[in-house]
Design a protein around this nucleic acid. Structure first.
Lengths: 213, 213
DNA sequence: AGGTGTGAAAGGGTTCACAGCG
DNA sequence: CGCTGTGAACCCTTTCACACCT
């Protein structure tokens, strides 16, 4: 299949074809009228725009179950991510290989970051260790942090943090599950929040915008 | 602190106070004019609306690193989730306790679901096993599935699926990282997508709406 | 013809601003 | 007087519809 139309892609993605064309148009004019989009060319252009063609060395700090799961996760390599190092505070872990990469001790964190030119760090430590680790990562030159620890991190301006809460997705499912069952609700919620569109399976839309901890 | 104003909550959440008040108004009139919101009462009302006051038994299928990390995750209990069972296809795992819960074999999946009245299942298996597991969960009565396997699942109408891709958040960070560094871009992207607001750390907004696999 | 690229219309969500209540 | 609750204004995103190119 050398070429696709916006109509076909839209159907596959579960969106309107006009939206898809408009979105693509922000990247440039990569389609051919009367024909569609050249698949290979389009994939390359989107990959480049998203930064998938670059090599991103990342470090994972905190090699418990979650850290190990991340280290073993196959999806990283294909998106341009390379696990440059695994770091843990437990001296007993040092030297042990996880996913083929030897775990290093937290003492060497700064050196590891600098030697590998790492700008993205993943924190998978317990809650208490997260902020100190974060501070050291930032001081060593990391400017983007993915945080799996159940804490809100404080960082200086110019540093991006994204927090992943493994229970939030479950909570969204439970929210809908609740509605499937009993239909006796106190309040009124606008239709947009009532239910996700069938077909989509992703973390977007359909989530209350404001949800205090 | 027995009471909060919408202004204070909005500042803490990094949003507009009017939005917060409007959002709350969909749940009912839980505030007091001239005073603010009674914290304890508000927390209860929001919890109830989100389904946090209920008990949600869940099963986790696939007890590798990720499954184990989920089983050990502390955040579930406080949100009303109870890990009713851990299930794995490896006979060697059967009986082994993970996070204090003995792992059970896939053969007993249907019985486990029914005995515990489980309606929410978590899939943390390898990609190949995900769809068969999903089918069995659904046949046994599960109506909401949280999928960590790198596959898009096919389910009948009435079943909700949410897919968590651990590399997508990393990709979003890399996208911004790329912009921090070089500023030579081919295309033009609308301002809303240019950068996340400082202060927020969540998986929402700021993500291209359409991103074909 | 067939399908992109895009101005213009429609729609939905956010913000303003203030009436109204404690 | 202070702060909620909310109609109305505003703005951004999505969709329509069609000119234009292949």
């Amino acid at each position: 299949m050398p070429t696709v139309s916006s109509e076909e892609l839209a159907a596959a993605a579960g969106v309107n074809s006009a939206k898809l064309r408009k979105d693509f148009s922000y990247l440039g004019s990569y389609g051919t009228r009367g024909v569609g989009y050249d698949v290979e060319y389009l994939v390359y252009q989107i990959s480049r725009e998203l930064g998938l063609t670059q090599d991103w060395p990342v470090v994972i700090v905190g090699i418990g179950n979650l850290g190990a799961a991340l280290a073993n996760y196959g999806g990283f390599a294909s998106r341009g991510f390379r696990v440059a190092a695994l770091i843990d505070a437990d001296p007993a872990m040092a030297g042990k290989p996880v996913a083929g990469i030897p775990v290093q001790h937290t003492d060497d964190l700064e050196k590891i970051i600098q030697d590998n030119g790492v700008s993205i760090g993943v924190i998978a430590t317990p809650a208490g260790a997260a902020q100190p680790v974060c501070d050291r990562l930032v001081a060593a030159g990391v400017t983007s942090i993915l945080n799996f620890a159940p804490t809100v991190l404080t960082v200086p301006d110019g540093v991006d943090v994204r927090k992943v809460d493994l229970s939030i997705e479950l909570q969204i499912l439970a929210f809908h599950e609740q509605r499937k069952a009993g239909e006796d609700h106190g309040g009124t919620v606008p239709p947009a929040a009532a239910h996700q569109e069938p077909g989509e399976q992703g973390p977007d839309g359909d989530v209350p915008a404001v949800m205090p901890a």
